[in-house]
């Protein structure tokens, strides 16, 4: 870890000026569970770390008629233990329950979870000056790409590591952003960016902007959700493939399906073809299978990660059948 200065922010308004115009100037820290590791691995080498935990009033979960508003500094444990989340948003509750370990969930925040940097072992190693760090190539290409992307056509093949992000996206959540010109709101679907748009980062945030809140609309009646995660180890492990699914089913017919895969693409990956296929159809096993096929239609696996296509397919089929029954 390189030397850096450390600043405690005391208000949201103050933060943009404490941050800089470049990611190398300053970064924000909340739980620090991702950032500190990144700094130890020299994947992040900021001159200044701006602590957000010193800001009062960003740690809340509020419910109203429109839905739920979750402050950016709310820990994953608080999300997990919130009764509105567990009763009305099972997809989010289940997703948060399988993140990391209890110790990490006690420290890590919900906003920090969706802002995690790639877990790619080339990105995290100081020996590989990869595209994400301003280098010339993606080492997953021609390297060991067992845990890399099967969707998107590069040039970087990282996968987005978040479990919470697919769940929030499936729920149609909105991210509240604060920058030098004040606050703004962005749909989760528009928040994440593919490598060809922005090779160094995974979302639209600029260096001097932060997330202040995530709001989740109340799910429509007859809507059900679930989160599935396949990992090699039952704890402290990222998804090989995950699926956040929220479906509205009336009398066996799917009115709306929201299916977002994790661990398969540089961003949480909405399975649009599968969603379109399911809309208005009566759910049968054959149709669940067709939806699964549609979900991976565009998959382009790398030499070592073809297994992810099969897992993604199986998860979609499993979730569609379970939510229709």
């Amino acid at each position: 870890m390189r030397n850096f200065s450390y600043v405690n922010a005391t208000s949201i308004e103050q933060v943009p000026s404490l941050l800089g115009r470049s990611w190398d100037d300053a970064v924000v820290m909340a739980g620090g569970t991702d950032l500190v590791g990144e700094m130890k691995d020299y994947a992040a080498v900021p001159k200044r770390v701006v602590n957000l935990k010193s800001i009062e009033g960003l740690d809340y979960i509020r419910q109203d008629d429109a839905g739920l508003r979750i402050g950016a500094l709310t820990t994953l444990t608080d999300v997990l233990e919130n009764s509105a989340v567990s009763q009305e948003l099972p997809v989010l509750h289940q997703a948060v329950s399988v993140i990391a370990s209890p110790q990490i969930r006690n420290m890590a925040t919900l906003a920090g979870n969706i802002l995690q940097r790639p877990r790619c072992w080339y990105y995290r190693s100081e020996d590989f000056p990869c595209l994400k760090k301003g280098g010339a190539r993606c080492y997953a290409v021609g390297g060991v790409n067992t845990y890399h992307a099967i969707f998107g056509s590069g040039p970087s093949y990282i996968v987005h590591p978040s479990d919470a992000a697919p769940a929030l996206m499936a729920l149609g959540a909105t991210v509240h952003v604060h920058g030098p010109r004040g606050g703004d709101e962005v749909l989760m679907d528009d928040f994440f960016t593919m490598p060809e748009m922005n090779i160094r980062r995974e979302n639209i945030l600029r260096p001097n902007e932060i997330v202040t809140e995530i709001s989740i609309p109340k799910p429509e009646a007859n809507s059900k959700g679930m989160f599935l995660k396949v990992r090699e180890r039952e704890s402290i492990d990222f998804a090989l493939v995950s699926l956040a699914a929220q479906m509205t089913v009336v009398n066996g017919t799917c009115e709306r399906a929201s299916l977002v895969l994790g661990g398969v693409a540089p961003i949480p990956w909405r399975a649009v073809e599968a969603e379109d296929y399911l809309r208005g159809r009566r759910i049968t096993e054959a149709r669940a299978e067709s939806a699964a096929e549609a979900a991976v239609e565009d998959a382009a696996p790398m030499p070592h990660n073809g297994y992810k296509v099969e897992i993604a397919k199986n998860l979609v089929k499993q979730a569609v059948q379970a939510l229709a029954s």
């Binding site: 072992w121 190693s125 390297g143 845990y147 090699e232 180890r233 039952e234 402290i236």
Partner: peptide
């Protein structure tokens, strides 16, 4: 079931951390 040093063609170990070198936890 899980543990191995995974090598790159350049002779470096890709998974030199307990995250990527998976030892079982009690939940496994």
């Amino acid at each position: 079931l899980n543990e191995e040093y995974i090598y790159n063609d350049d002779g470096s170990m890709t998974n030199a951390s307990f995250l990527d070198y998976r030892m079982p936890t009690t939940l496994d």
